[in-house]
Amino acid sequence: MNILAFYKKGIREASGRPKVVLILWAANAVFAVPAYVLFSSLLASALGPSGAAAGLMKTADMNILFEVLTTSGRPFGMLFAALLVLVLFYFLASIFLAGGILGVLLDGPVPGRTGRTFFGSGAAYYGRFLRLTVYSLGLWLPAAALFGLASAGVGAATAGSTKEQLSFYLTLALAALALFLVFLIKMIMDYARIRIAAEDTDKVLPSLLRSVRFVFKRPGLTLGLYYLLGLTGLAIFGAWRLLNSAIPATAMAAVLAAFVLAQVFIAGRGWLKVAYQSAQLEVSRTHRPEGQPKTAEATLRVPAPQVPPAATEDRPS
């Protein structure tokens, strides 16, 4: 199979899992509710009974917005600190969600089991995925060091330079390097999670190391697929912003329409996440782990398409 085939497979699989996408959206929305409540109460408190609020519905009067930020700077600062904590919790929750997605994908299309499998898998893999996240520091730290070295090199090369384009392009290259490293490690982590779930193994660190080897042995395939899916995500984002810009949010109905559009985008992100996992799972299945015979089906679990399987030790419940 080539990159495009894996991509199509991932997209097809994700499109066939609306319940998973719904769960991902709902989890995201649940975490966003406190942000909405805190922000709206803070803004309402800052505006008070002022008539300026009505004007803000029509135009974003920067005079008023700057005032709100200035006079309520401390509460807004506290809000953003609280939201950072919320982001951290969401990150921890996303470890659970990642397990859920993989569980459902590994379980195959079993009607009526999606929710049970999702949450059961999320719980079953959580400890191992959390350990994996901690172990991933072993990848993040060298990556940070590499980036630091590159950054220092660029700094030395451009210090006192009057060649602005050179500085600009080197800075762009640095940003590209940072993104590349982030995506690379995220991708390795994806494969490691797939391996842990598929093999239902407790050997987290070896799984991570084998995933590193797996990715580095076929960088064209793994990176190509990852970036193709990334481009899809970029297209979804672009479509959201484009459609959003066409909505003149000067009436409540338009505001709600824009909000619904945002929710569609968030659901699209969830859908893409499933597509990532599904396509990469397929890559893992097609390119068997090293040392395993190609016929050893048991090594990587494959979906049991029709018959609901009985609970076994290597399957989360």
Binding site: A32, M57, A258
Partner: peptide
């Protein structure tokens, strides 16, 4: 008081916050 503007900005903010959450997950 007209709460519509507050809802407008809060919903917009929530949308961006959701996008951030989906990025860090």
């Amino acid at each position: 008081p007209d709460g519509r503007a507050v809802r407008k900005f809060a919903l917009g903010f929530a949308g961006w916050f959701q996008a951030l959450l989906s990025l860090v997950s």
